[in-house]
Amino acid sequence: MPRFEVVTLVHAPPELVFDVSLSVEAHIASMSASGERAVGGVTSGRLGPGDEVTWRARHFGVVWRLTSTISAYDRPSFFVDEQVAGPFRRWRHEHYFEAAGEGTLMRDVVDFAAPLGVLGRLAEVVVLRRYLTRLIVVRNRHLTERLEARR
């Protein structure tokens, strides 16, 4: 089962980093390269416990839809979004926020699995893990720049 982790230091308080991480608008802005949009469920504002959102984006030249729900929520330290419908056999993204000096250590832990059996496992190793890690890094860079510009 593929898993990766990305750790990012943000010079902003955990409550603010947590809240912006759940902002639909911030997510859309951070994923502008793939044209990601919220097309169902909660399509604006801040997501909360039990909320669902359907995302539409273009990756690898193909338009995908993924519906996720906020399945765990403990403000300001932790939340989880999980796929309930979409292209993955499994998608679970854990978000951790920990005070670190005058900032926040943001840790993303992603567990995922591709469909299609052996072909999916090959795609996980050859392409998906690296591609998805890069998406999280880009998203976190965008959030960090947005939050630190407020200081």
Rank of each mutant, 00 (worst) to 15 (best):
M1L: 15
E5A: 09
V6Q: 02
V6T: 08
V6L: 04
V7D: 08
L9M: 04
L9Q: 07
H11T: 08
A12H: 01
A12G: 04
P13S: 02
P14V: 11
E15Q: 14
V17D: 01
V17W: 05
D19E: 15
D19R: 15
V20R: 00
S23Q: 13
V24R: 04
A26Y: 10
H27I: 12
H27D: 08
I28P: 10
I28G: 05
M31H: 11
S32P: 07
S32C: 10
A33T: 11
A33M: 07
A33R: 03
S34M: 14
G35R: 02
G35H: 06
E36T: 13
E36V: 08
E36D: 07
E36Y: 00
R37H: 06
A38D: 12
A38V: 14
V39M: 06
G41S: 05
G41M: 12
V42F: 01
V42S: 02
T43K: 10
G45R: 15
G45E: 14
G45C: 15
G45K: 15
R46V: 14
G48E: 08
G48I: 08
P49M: 12
P49R: 07
G50N: 09
G50I: 08
G50S: 11
V53C: 13
V53P: 10
V53S: 04
W55N: 02
A57V: 14
A57D: 12
A57Q: 13
A57S: 14
H59Q: 06
H59W: 12
F60C: 00
W64D: 00
R65C: 10
R65F: 12
L66A: 04
T67A: 04
S68K: 03
S68R: 02
I70L: 01
I70N: 02
R75I: 15
P76Y: 04
E82H: 03
Q83V: 14
A85M: 08
G86T: 13
G86D: 05
G86Y: 08
G86W: 11
P87M: 02
P87R: 04
F88S: 01
R89H: 11
R92E: 05
E94M: 03
F97D: 03
F97N: 04
G103V: 13
G103R: 10
G103H: 11
T104M: 00
T104F: 00
R107T: 14
D108V: 10
V110K: 06
V110M: 03
V110T: 07
D111Q: 15
F112I: 15
A113K: 06
G117K: 08
G117F: 12
L119H: 03
L119D: 02
G120T: 10
A123V: 14
E124H: 05
V125A: 04
L128C: 10
Y131R: 00
L132R: 05
T133Y: 00
R134L: 13
I136A: 07
V138F: 01
R139C: 14
N140V: 15
N140M: 13
H142D: 15
L143E: 02
R146K: 06
A149S: 09
R150H: 07
R150T: 13
R151S: 07
